[in-house]
Design a protein around this nucleic acid. Structure first.
Lengths: 190, 190
DNA sequence: GCCATTTTGGACCGAATGGTCCGCAACAAC
DNA sequence: GTTGTTGCGGACCATTCGGTCCAAAATGGC
């Protein structure tokens, strides 16, 4: 029981996440992280360990949030197809997705070089695929999604399209390009 | 005149391209570049300028090659759909595409931070889209591709799918995932 | 008020970064 | 062989990187 902390851990982590999201792992300098978290060097190292650990913590947080958000799609009662449409439309809506998807970004940056992180990404994508599979199954039951392909295959296709859109967003592609691509991806669910 | 060079410029550039492709711009250290090109520091700086210029030169080369390869699709006489299938199938064939697509990688790494490079990427994607549009038009004429969507929209969809696959390749996704996603992307051409 | 405990700021560190520069080496012209 | 020109190896540089450490500050318990 001594001197209390002057910062909120969760808030600091959010700040760090922001920087990693925007700049990637290597691209995020300690200075930026200190600035974004508002911590001093010693506080940051004391609280989160080294840069890599901090990154992993932030990355896990990001993945959990993304998955939670995705699982909301399961809970709604609207036709599944509408849920998926909303899901993809949020990707190409720039204001709410300025830096693309962090998982996609890190898959590109670290995937080939960091087996540990590659595994986390693979696991996450599998979970995303699993959630989407259940949504598609629901859509095939409620008639909003065609049955010419298995739910699993369609979910995999959605995972790919999702990542494709994220890349285009990060590349600052034109809105017509994004809209056309999105529309056709959705039409594959017929 | 005087002392002749001991290296082949094109060959050195290929070496540098390899490193940038694999590691990205920031991830490629001078030491790696020197090693891959076989040049000494002074020769490299004399020949190619600084790291950024070298990168731009290599990146341009990559884009030109990719576009040239893509344009081969135009020249064949087979049904256009088969050409597109071959085009996408090469993406998910790991041995011939171990590091994913450099344009996709750099879109993710530098897109949001380097306006100059973002422009180059945007221009390249437009050119890719243009070539694919022509291929799709041919396919719509020869009957191998449906006409429920415009050729341009389909081409844009292909650009997105292409990038999506590249991300998954770089993330070392499982082959079944890649295969399913690819198959469904192709079926969107019906 | 004093002590124990914990946080905090910042000095400090070695390594690696991209980049410059210069003296020597190698070759063509004559 | 001499000279003029260019290429080359590597010493050298400032900066930034992630990371450590310690002395001072702050506060709860008594």
């Amino acid at each position: 029981m001594a001197r209390p902390r002057e910062f909120d851990e969760q808030q600091a982590l959010d700040g760090a996440l922001d920087v990693f999201w925007r700049c990637g792992y290597e691209g995020a300098s300690l200075a930026q992280l200190l600035d974004a978290t508002g911590l001093s060097k010693s506080s940051l190292y004391e609280t989160f360990g080294d840069k890599r650990r901090l990154f992993l913590t932030a990355f896990d947080l990001y993945q959990e949030r993304q998955l939670a958000q995705l699982e909301e799609l399961l809970r709604t009662r609207k036709p599944a197809r509408r849920s998926i449409e909303r899901f993809l439309r949020r990707v190409v809506h720039r204001p709410s997705n300025p830096w693309g998807c962090m998982v996609c970004n890190e898959a590109v940056e670290l995937g080939p070089h960091d087996p540990d992180i590659a595994k986390r990404i693979a696991r996450h994508l599998e979970r995303v695929e699993a959630v989407l599979t259940r949504v598609v199954e629901r859509g095939q039951r409620d008639g909003s999604i065609g049955t010419r392909s298995t739910a699993r295959a369609l979910a995999r296709f959605l995972v790919m399209s999702w990542n494709g859109l994220q890349v285009l967003v990060r590349a600052k592609s034109s809105q017509p390009l994004l809209d056309d691509a999105l529309a056709l991806a959705l039409s594959a669910l017929d």
